[in-house]
């Protein structure tokens, strides 16, 4: 698996290297997170109870309401946030939130990225490349 590279349809933000936190589940800052404690808090979420601080979140699809557009900026201001977000399918809110917060995000793959990246793997993301990618180190 080491060295495996997966190209995304789109990306924004900076290069990031960190450990991946992976699940076949959705993502919404309002619905899923206790943003003060920095953990997934919705009981039904597959990452319930897990800390997202400093991790590259590899998840299926953006979910929920519009609040994430502000919340990523608020999370960044307190330094309690993921290192990056990697999604099979983004929605406009995630893109808008990442744009405001200057947050690293890539999305849109030929494979199900939640199955391709092992949970806990060290990964590198480069959204600035001509073809944005995530690579398992």
């Amino acid at each position: 698996m080491s060295g495996e590279i997966y190209y995304a349809a789109a990306g924004m933000g900076r290069k990031v290297r960190a450990k991946a936190l992976v699940a076949s589940d959705g993502f919404s800052a309002r619905y899923d997170l206790d943003r003060i404690r920095g953990v997934f808090s919705r009981p039904e979420h597959k990452l319930a109870g897990e800390s997202y601080q400093g991790r590259v979140l590899v998840l299926d699809a953006a979910k929920g309401g519009v609040a994430t557009a502000w919340m990523l900026h608020e999370m960044a201001s307190r330094g309690v946030m993921p290192a990056a977000l990697v999604l099979n399918r983004a929605n406009p809110i995630m893109v808008q939130g990442a744009a405001l917060a200057d947050f690293t995000m890539i999305s849109g793959f030929d494979v199900d990225i939640t199955h391709a990246i092992p949970n806990g793997a060290e990964v590198e993301i480069d959204p600035t490349a001509q073809r944005p990618f995530i690579r398992v180190i």
Binding site: V66, A67, A69, W70, P92, I93, Q96, G97
Partner: peptide, 8 residues
Amino acid sequence: SNFEGGPS
């Protein structure tokens, strides 16, 4: 309309 978060 798309979903337009607050900043957008």
